[in-house]
């Protein structure tokens, strides 16, 4: 019963996501093959659903990978500078090569995110006495520095306003033809699953990984690359969404443990479901307008996380 609950919830949320929107789409219209209803479905609702699911899965997995590499449960792209670096990358691509396309922008974001994550992991490895709080605090400070550089840069180039656009994740602009780059997350998810055991071994620490015959540096670098691809693909298509990578892995670890081979599918389902729920909420709150998902995910995730912390440490 409990095993079936999560997939069922996920399917229910998918259906809801397809049905909710300014334009009414009813099952009867779809069944009578109304062109209008089908166009809404294929051009807007299905792309949005796909983008939501992939982003949710991707961000949750990013959180898991980063947490395993850094060995700290409070780390995710938003608390390790990765997200800020990706934004900085997009900004610089816009000024250096103004005519650059989406793929070009993504490559810039990817490169910046990857280098910034490598640097962050190097910093963390360099700190001798790391406490559980120090690691994410260093990440937040590091991210703030990157963010400040981005803002200063944007200010100098009169980009400050359009930069607000990427600051907040938003699915309302997703339509057929402008979101397909998000499908890059699909192979990343497959790779993450194939390498699941390696990431668990990484989380045992450098010494233990080496004595189990795993090349620590190579595999940690690979993990950061997977994170960078996912983060840059989501920032380009929907923008920044905080907390998903933090809340979901913590929730799953608490109830299902951390043997990634077993828990990754659960992490994926939780991630997608959380984002779907936040999106539906955002679409209904001030109907027919929308609250950007960056806001809903930020507040819902923040509250869930607070509850988790209180339950765990009191």
């Amino acid at each position: 019963m409990r095993r079936a609950a999560l997939p069922l919830l996920f399917l229910l949320l998918c259906c809801l996501s397809l049905m909710v929107g300014v334009k009414q789409v009813s099952w009867s219209a779809l069944l009578s093959f109304s062109d209008d209803a089908w166009l809404t479905l294929t051009a807007s609702r299905l792309p949005r659903l796909a983008a939501l699911v992939l982003t949710g899965v991707g961000l949750a997995m990013c959180g898991v990978i980063l947490q395993q590499i850094v060995r700290n449960r409070f780390v995710e792209p938003a608390t390790s500078g990765g997200l800020d670096a990706a934004k900085l990358g997009i900004l610089i691509s816009l000024t250096v090569v103004p005519s650059i396309g989406t793929v070009g922008k993504m490559l810039f974001a990817l490169a910046f995110c990857f280098v910034a994550s490598l640097l962050y992991v190097a910093i963390i490895r360099h700190i001798k006495f790391k406490s559980i709080v120090l690691v994410p605090v260093v990440g937040l400070m590091y991210g703030s520095v990157l963010s400040a550089i981005a803002e200063f840069y944007a200010y100098r180039h009169n980009f400050l306003q359009s930069m607000q656009g990427w600051l907040l994740g938003d699915f309302s602009k997703i339509v057929q033809g402008n979101y397909e780059i998000i499908y890059l997350i699909l192979p990343i998810v497959v790779l993450t699953y194939l390498f699941a055991q390696r990431f668990t071994v990484l989380a045992m620490g450098e010494g233990m990984a080496s004595s189990l015959g795993l090349n620590y540096t190579a595999n940690a670098t690979l993990g950061l690359m997977l994170v960078a691809v996912t983060v840059s693909a989501t920032v380009i298509t929907v923008g920044a969404i905080p907390f998903v990578g933090l809340v979901v892995p913590n929730l799953v670890a608490m109830y299902y443990g951390e043997n990634l081979e077993r828990t990754l599918p659960i992490v994926a389902l939780y991630g997608a479901s959380l984002l779907l729920a936040c999106d539906i909420l955002g679409r209904l709150l001030i109907y027919p307008f929308e609250v950007p998902i960056g806001l809903t995910a930020g507040s819902v995730g923040g509250v869930v996380f607070l509850v988790l912390l209180i339950r765990k440490y009191t």
Binding site: R73, R198, V201, M204, G257, E258, N259, E261
Partner: peptide
């Protein structure tokens, strides 16, 4: 070491050099 693994899962990782997963 703060990974949440069961005893059986932990012991299984001793096989990592052979199984690679």
């Amino acid at each position: 070491f703060n990974l949440r693994l069961t005893v059986e899962e932990l012991v299984a990782f001793g096989r990592f050099p052979y199984s690679r997963g």
